[in-house]
């Protein structure tokens, strides 16, 4: 019934020194639709692919604003993300009340990651099943950070998470050297091009299913919507050079082999 006897509790180490429950929680992130983020020297951009349960349903929002200088995009269990977003908003607001300035994103990310970690070390709670990209612009410039159920957090120039995010990652790795000097518009276009690799074969990016948000120097966190977003979608169609879309229906990794938690061990 179970893969092994070490994979049902978060508090149990496997003989190899792995935590299977945490690894499974990280699988939940890979089930969520893709989102990505990228930074220049002045701005940070988030792009996400939204899903709807059926044609009569609305799309599940993927990007949430935390404060004027910070927002998140999530992949995985949305309900978990909402809890965490509430925590982040409270922290940001408290900081603003006490210090009169905006909370440093990396410090919030550290606290958030510590919250994730605590769930991996006690029997009482399950790990959070959500991965998060935090885009912010604070006293030390623009930042993009990733948190994961394992309690790890990293700062990136650009990163993609969620289902079929590998092709986006490949795109970002290919182009990341252009990002620091890029304009916000170029950053968004790079983001959308990378994101187009994450959709299944026959679909296309459109205004309804894509979320884009920007934050930067003199630019409060804001979602790019409607006609403005359409303009970017049109532009990338003209420019081409998008990430190769993933073959339809093919999962990223064989489902029965859990990815080693090597992120936790580096």
């Amino acid at each position: 019934m179970f893969r092994n006897q070490y994979d049902t509790d978060v508090t149990v180490w496997s003989p190899q020194g792995r935590l299977h429950q945490v690894e499974y929680a990280m699988e939940a992130v890979k089930q969520g639709s893709a989102c990505l983020g990228l930074t220049s020297k002045t701005h940070a951009v988030l792009c996400a692919l939204k899903r709807s349960p059926n044609e009569l349903g609305s799309y599940q929002e993927k990007i949430m604003k935390i404060d004027d200088h910070m927002g998140i995009s999530i992949a995985g269990l949305t309900a978990d993300a909402r809890m965490l977003a509430k925590y982040m908003r409270t922290e940001a607001l408290n900081h603003k009340y006490v210090y009169g300035t905006q909370l440093q994103a990396n410090r919030l990310a550290t606290d958030l990651a510590d919250m994730h970690q605590r769930c991996t070390q006690s029997y009482v709670r399950r790990p959070y099943g959500v991965g998060m990209l935090i885009a912010a612009h604070d006293a030390t410039g623009p930042h993009l950070m990733e948190t994961s159920p394992s309690g790890n957090y990293f700062e990136y120039v650009a990163m993609a998470i969620g289902a079929r995010s590998q092709s986006a990652k490949t795109y970002l790795e290919k182009h990341y050297q252009d990002f620091p000097a890029a304009s916000v518009d170029d950053l968004i276009k790079h983001g959308l091009k990378a994101l187009s690799g994450c959709i299944t074969g026959d679909k296309e990016l459109d205004v309804a299913s894509v979320s884009v948000a920007i934050v930067g120097a003199g630019q409060a966190f804001e979602e790019v919507q409607g006609a403005r977003l359409q303009a970017f979608l049109d532009a990338i169609e003209v420019e081409g050079d998008a990430a190769a879309p993933a073959p339809a229906g093919e999962p990223e990794a064989p489902a029965d082999v859990p990815a080693p938690m090597d992120e936790g061990i580096a």
């Binding site: 790890n152 700062e155 990136y156 990163m159 990652k169 970002l172 790795e173 090597d262 580096a266």
Partner: peptide
């Protein structure tokens, strides 16, 4: 020795 999992990482993070 800090192993780097991605070349997209900002130097010095983690």
């Amino acid at each position: 020795e800090k192993l780097l999992l991605s070349k997209l990482l900002v130097p010095g993070t983690n």
